[in-house]
Design a binder for these strands. Structure first.
Lengths: 217, 217
DNA sequence: CGGCTAATTGTGCAACTGTATAATTACTGC
DNA sequence: GCAGTAATTATACAGTTGCACAATTAGCCG
C-alpha cells in the first residue's frame, strides 16, 4: 500500500498568496503575533508549511505583505473617495469613516498592535509604515486646508500643520480606545465625539447631518 | 582542578527582582519583545537563567511584573501631584507632563508597543491594563470637572464624560506620534499643541505660562 | 568557628521554530 | 494521450526557547 499523501488542487498563484496572507492576518488578530508561526499559518490556509517558502522568500516577507495589505485596507476605507458637496462635508466624512467599523474595530486594532512592535525594530515594514502614516496625515491636512479656505479663513502653513497634527491625534486616540474597549462606547458615539472635537479645534462647524447617507441617486 | 564556577554575591531579594525587571524592560525597549528571552534577560541582569525561575513563577510572571512597573511609572509621572494655584493650572500641567519626556519618548512608546500585543491576548496583564487606563481617565475627568466648575460652568455628567474621552484621545494620539517620530517635533511643540487642543475642546483658556516652573520656593 | 538555609549556578531536555531540499503530483500545451 | 513544468507535499535539520532539577556556595546565626 502506497503511503497516503494529501491530495491537493492547484489554484491560481495570486489566490494562494492571498489565502496565506488572509491566514496570517486572521491568526494575528485572533491569537496574537506569537501564535502566527509558519506551521499555524499553513494549517489555516489549508496547505503544507513548505509551500509558504515557495511563495515568500521568508516568513518576514509574508509578514510584510500582510502588514501592507492591512494598512492599505485601513487607508482605503478612511481616505477613500468621500463625495461631498462642500469641503467641510468631505472632512466630516473622513473623520467619521475612521471612527466607525470596520476601521475602528477590535480586529483592526489588534492587528495593528501585533505589527507595531515589529515595525519599530527593523525590517522592510518601516517603509510601509512611513508611507501609510504620511499618506493619512497629508490627506487630512489637505481636507482641513480646503475646509478652512471654504470658510474664508486664510491659515498660514505652520498653523495648518499643527491643526493636522492635533486632528490626527484625536482620531488616532479615539480609534485606539474604540478598538481596545469595544463595549465602552455606544455605536456612533466615537464618530460624534471625533466630529465635535475637530469642530472645536478648527473652530469650524462639522455637524452630524453631514455624514448621513444620501438617498438621492 | 575543580571546574571553575561563576562567583556570585547574594544581594537583597527585592534588589534582584528589580534587576531582572530592569533587564527585561531595557531589552524590550531596545531590541523588541522577541529578543527578550529568559537567557537574554538573565545575561543582562548578570545572572544565570535558572535564577529567573527562582524569583518568578514563569516568564509570563516576569513580563507581568515588568508591565506593571512600566505603566505605574508612566502614570506616576503624569498623574503625579501637580501643584497649582488654580484647577485650570493643574489641568494644564497634567496635559503638559504627559507630552514631555520621559513620558513621551521613543523608549516609553516602544515599551508600550511591545506589551500591547501581549495585553490583548490573555494573561494577568489585562487587569493591569484596565486599572491603568481607568486611573488615567478618571484623573483627567476630575481635573476637567474642577477646571470647568472653577470657570463657573455647570457641565452635566454625560458631556463631562465625552470631554474626558476626547481629551484623553488627543493626549494619547500626540503621545504616540511623539514617541514614534521623535524627530518630527520640536521640543515643547507637542505640549503646546496638546494645550491648544484641550483649550479649544473645553472652550477654556489653558495658557503656556501655566506650565512654567515656579522659582519662588 | 561550624552548620543551615536559601540564593545561585550549571546542565539537560522536550518542544517548537524557520528553513532547506528532495520527492511527488496536478495541470498545460501540444 | 503524453510529456514537461511548476505547484505542492513530505521529511529532515540545526538552532532556540522555556523550564525542571540537582549541585554548589555565600551569608547568617549560634
Amino acid at each position: 500500500m502506497p503511503p497516503e499523501r494529501k491530495p491537493f488542487r492547484r489554484i491560481g498563484p495570486d489566490q494562494r498568496r492571498d489565502a496565506m496572507i488572509d491566514a496570517m492576518l486572521s491568526l494575528i488578530a485572533e491569537e496574537g503575533m506569537a501564535a502566527a508561526t509558519t506551521r499555524a499559518v499553513a494549517a489555516r490556509a489549508g496547505v503544507t508549511p513548505g509551500l509558504i517558502r515557495h511563495y515568500f522568500d521568508s516568513k518576514d516577507a509574508l509578514l510584510s505583505a500582510a502588514y501592507e495589505r492591512h494598512m492599505s485596507a485601513l487607508t482605503a476605507a478612511t481616505c477613500g473617495p468621500h463625495q461631498g458637496r462642500s469641503a467641510a462635508q468631505r472632512l466630516a466624512r473622513f473623520v467619521a469613516a475612521g471612527l466607525r467599523a470596520p476601521v475602528t474595530s477590535a480586529e483592526a486594532v489588534s492587528l495593528w498592535a501585533g505589527f507595531l512592535a515589529h515595525v519599530q525594530h527593523g525590517g522592510a515594514m518601516q517603509d510601509t509604515h512611513a508611507a501609510t502614516y504620511a499618506e493619512f496625515r497629508d490627506h487630512l491636512q489637505a481636507l482641513i486646508a480646503d475646509a478652512l479656505v471654504e470658510a474664508g479663513r486664510a491659515v498660514p502653513e505652520p498653523a495648518l500643520r499643527r491643526h493636522a497634527i492635533a486632528c490626527n491625534a484625536v482620531i488616532d486616540g479615539l480609534w485606539l480606545e474604540g478598538g481596545m474597549l469595544p463595549d465602552a462606547f455606544a455605536p456612533g458615539e466615537l464618530a460624534r465625539i471625533g466630529l465635535d472635537s475637530v469642530s472645536a479645534m478648527l473652530d469650524l462647524a462639522l455637524t452630524p447631518d453631514m455624514i448621513e447617507e444620501e438617498d438621492t441617486p
